[in-house]
């Protein structure tokens, strides 16, 4: 399957170097997957399909890369055909390993995500409403917002250890800012007339938040929540790659280090599917809460 040099590389060095070696090795080789070949241009489709048919792997676009290296055999281990990946996925599921890793990742990202959404929405409403709080917190928030979450991973690990708490915290941190900023924007752009109308009905501040400001900001807040959903998974996977004993990030990096390349791709595939699923669910929830919005191009006034 794999060439000895690559095995050595993968087992003796970090995974990043391994990937670098891989791309380095195939420099100058015409059949090597280059960045441009990862994108299937329409004009190339025909050729790719022909090659795909010829190489006995009728596979869709992402693994279409494989069709660019038919017959060479040298990279078989690094770019396994889809059926091998699916086989690996199947065996991971049947052994219950995938479920364990998925459960670990989901628990972490869901906890972090929930903490982030609740705190960011509350803080966002307060910051948008109380100008003095905004002036006080804004510089601080800007500094933190512009600090990449992963750059703080070592700090979180130092402060909170390598256990669950540090991972949940970094997910919460990464998911916090998109929700916060969109909540603030949602409140700031609301129609002041609606606040006057609600005030004229004698609503207290709390009721005003609950019944007018929050519902009117919901569509904007959801934009932030969707962004947060994506980044919470992204950051978690990266965090799990660095220091964890379970989780999809761990599965991916551990498979790579053990040179179980199909398992690695099975992990990556699961991450993609998880991302898509999360986004789909959030869009569905968003649609439910934003039914009242006039759709663009709708017939009504």
């Amino acid at each position: 399957m794999a060439t000895p040099t690559l095995t050595k590389t993968a087992s003796s060095r970090s995974w990043k170097v391994g990937v670098g070696e891989f791309f380095g090795n195939c420099r100058g080789v015409t059949s090597c997957p280059t960045l441009s070949s990862l994108v299937q241009y329409p004009a190339r489709k025909g050729r790719a399909r022909r090659l795909g048919l010829g190489s006995n792997h009728p596979v869709p676009a992402p693994v279409g890369v494989r069709t660019r290296v038919p017959g060479t055999g040298g990279h078989q281990g690094i770019l396994p055909p889809l059926h091998e990946v699916l086989n690996a996925l199947g065996s991971l599921i049947s052994k219950g390993q995938l479920q364990t890793h998925l459960a670990a990742s989901l628990t972490r990202s869901a906890s972090g995500f929930e903490i982030a959404v609740v705190t960011a929405v509350v803080l966002g409403l307060l910051v948008a409403w109380y100008r003095s709080l905004d002036r006080f917190l804004n510089p601080l928030l800007e500094v933190f917002r512009n600090t990449a979450a992963l750059a703080l991973l070592p700090v979180f690990t130092l402060l909170l250890g390598i256990g669950e708490i540090s991972k949940i915290s970094i997910v919460a941190y990464a998911a916090f800012f998109p929700v916060l900023l969109n909540t603030i924007a949602g409140v700031r752009t609301m129609d002041p007339l609606l606040i006057r109308a609600a005030r004229s009905l004698g609503l207290s501040n709390f009721r005003l938040f609950q019944k007018v400001i929050l519902p009117s900001a919901v569509p904007t807040i959801f934009t932030g929540i969707r962004m947060a959903g994506t980044s919470s998974i992204l950051v978690l996977i990266a965090a799990e790659m660095v220091g964890a004993k379970a989780g999809l990030g761990y599965l991916i990096v551990n498979s790579q280090m053990s040179f179980l390349i199909p398992d690695m791709y099975a992990g990556i595939l699961t991450v993609s599917l998880l991302g898509l699923l999360v986004n789909y669910l959030l869009v569905a929830v968003e649609r439910h809460f934003s039914r009242w919005r006039t759709a663009v191009g709708s017939q009504s006034l």
Binding site: D191, L194, V212
Partner: peptide, 20 residues
């Protein structure tokens, strides 16, 4: 001294809550 339920206001731009 403030808004009260003995008075109601009707605004020019309707001020309906669009999510209701």
């Amino acid at each position: 001294t403030g808004p009260g339920r003995d008075r109601a206001v009707v605004f020019q731009q309707y001020a309906l809550f669009p999510w209701r």
